[in-house]
Design a protein around this nucleic acid. Sequence first.
DNA 1: TTTAGCACTAATGTGTCGCGAGTGCTAACT
DNA 2: AGTTAGCACTCGCGACACATTAGTGCTAAA
Lengths: 373, 373
Amino acid sequence: MYGKDLSERKKLILKAVVESHIELGEPVGSKSLQQLPGIKCSSATIRNEMAELEEMGYLEQPHTSAGRVPSQLGYRFYVDQLLEHYAMTTGEINQINSILKSKTAELDQILLAASKLASSITNYTGLAVKPKRSSVSVSRFEVAYIDESNFVLIMVTSLGNVVSKHVRLSEPRPRQRIELLCEALNKLVAGIAAESINLPVIMNLEAVMESDAPIVAPIVKTIYSALTEYDGGELQLSGINRLLQYSDYESPEHLSELLGTLEQKDEILRLVSESTGEDVSVLIGTESSVQVMNNSALVFKPIVKDGKTLGVIGVLGPLRMDYAKVLETIEHLCGSVEEIIGGYSPIFPSPAALPPSDKAANDLRKGKNDTDE
Amino acid sequence: MYGKDLSERKKLILKAVVESHIELGEPVGSKSLQQLPGIKCSSATIRNEMAELEEMGYLEQPHTSAGRVPSQLGYRFYVDQLLEHYAMTTGEINQINSILKSKTAELDQILLAASKLASSITNYTGLAVKPKRSSVSVSRFEVAYIDESNFVLIMVTSLGNVVSKHVRLSEPRPRQRIELLCEALNKLVAGIAAESINLPVIMNLEAVMESDAPIVAPIVKTIYSALTEYDGGELQLSGINRLLQYSDYESPEHLSELLGTLEQKDEILRLVSESTGEDVSVLIGTESSVQVMNNSALVFKPIVKDGKTLGVIGVLGPLRMDYAKVLETIEHLCGSVEEIIGGYSPIFPSPAALPPSDKAANDLRKGKNDTDE
DNA sequence: TTTAGCACTAATGTGTCGCGAGTGCTAACT
DNA sequence: AGTTAGCACTCGCGACACATTAGTGCTAAA
């Protein structure tokens, strides 16, 4: 393991370099370190130590006769071992409480609010992700009949969310047939994950629908696409303008590329979904393996309830971000969000107290979230 | 009216200045104009003309001994009177067709795709707006019962969209009571616009619900917020990175401010909703009366069907944007989108073929749109 | 009314210079 | 052996002077 061979003094110096550079954004020299409390040696000694730290890869020099700047490895080590707990100010805590607590609404809203808070507290770009989910299923179908050629198919998913799709029929069907279809769907499709809607299921459906068999296929297709679409993960950024505050020293083309990648969304979604575990992830520079983020750091943490990841909130900032504050903020935010959604009386408290469609029972064990729209 | 006193030659010169500056982004001098076809006088004459144009406010000089740059008024006049029709390339048309035609899905999706197209074709930032609607109402309520403390209230709006809200009850209620509530809602609230849900309505509801009166108020509040929230207008940007390509000569703080304003969304929504008529709007510089957009131009056009504005797509770019191309692109895009949604068989074809809730009848005269989710 | 010519202006680019912050190295010191 | 003082060296950076250049306005002639 790296970093085990560092003397206490080296750690102290590395820590000081990182923190000074995070704060001021400039290469830090031996003299400025010397007058720091806790260091009792001369600038020459510090120079020697820094030279060695550079040798080992923790620091680097923009050019001869500039101070040192932490390398990616330097930040890594700092985050892993040197970080001091940041105590959030009461102002910050109040801000979180007042804004977040007022949102008892949809999870989406809460996530967005949390991302905005993350951005405004840390002064970096905040992000909220509604993660890709595997194997969502519909626990119940409803129809809202509009006219003989149109109805809205409403699906309550296994997670308690609601997805609705407008369906247009090529040939008109009377109300009862549609309601029959709905019943059939509830009997045959409810509780089945999108990927396991297969031919036998469809044939069953068609058999039930008798003369209306032709309308089954397009409807199943609609259901399928609704589920997978809903499933697709969503990324929302807040405080994009703060990207400029720190990457202005970078080339504008680079920034433009970064913005493009962010707008694409898939890279970030991939990163977020790749991370395992319930803990904070910190991706520094190339660790993200996204070319354009080599000069950025990404900190994020999933919001977990009963073992399910309901969302992710995080912060995107420069390599020299204030990791202590960001980590603390993210953790606090996640905590608050989990508290809020935990405060909900569970929608599906136990396999016993169940929604009407018995079929769906086995899919509802853990789903207790409550977004919709 | 301005601009009537301009000689043909002045117009020619103004046009040339604008177009040259749009293309190259640099102040344009008398010499470079001279060698343009269609101008048969010497640079000195052009200088005189330009001096007069500056006098009149159509041109301005960044400093002595630089060329001239169009003023805001200059652009205005150019757009109003000098613009030449831009013929879209077949490549561009194909791009639109292939991408747009494949989206037969939700209006939201179509709008987003159109905005992306606008951005990629024009190389500026594209925007799509789902406009604020006035007086949406619920034409029908449905409930999806989950358990005795939870149900999902599903509302089919007067426009045929579906909004759903999860409702948590502080005290459990049996299924029948919820269904009764739903019936009552359909009787008393369906067809009423959010703003006309008043005390008498609520009292009526409470009377019907008898012992369950206490749950009425929060539910009405939910309905109200769902409607106004849904009603709130939505803005999506695409190609934000292209903002950098042209505003890099601006101060980075300014750009940051602009991004902030865009993220806020309300300014843009206001601008878009303020515009009347079905035509393209072109807001140049201060015409938007948004401080931070003084150096930007906004071009947008509503998507209209049967007299209803279903969305707006537009482009945000620098003052020196390629108005000819942008205008043509936006108009073409809007045309394509209208064509696509026009192809839908109308959901509410006539006041006769109506959704079950008779109450809602009078709200459905024109609603023929079909988004959902 | 147009044009050629000329003096003038301001931005832009280039080269030189000195300053200052910071380093590495060596030699003396504990 | 580790620490420190001292010193020579290296860059980056801002300042200044200077030439260049693209463009102007004005005047006087066509």
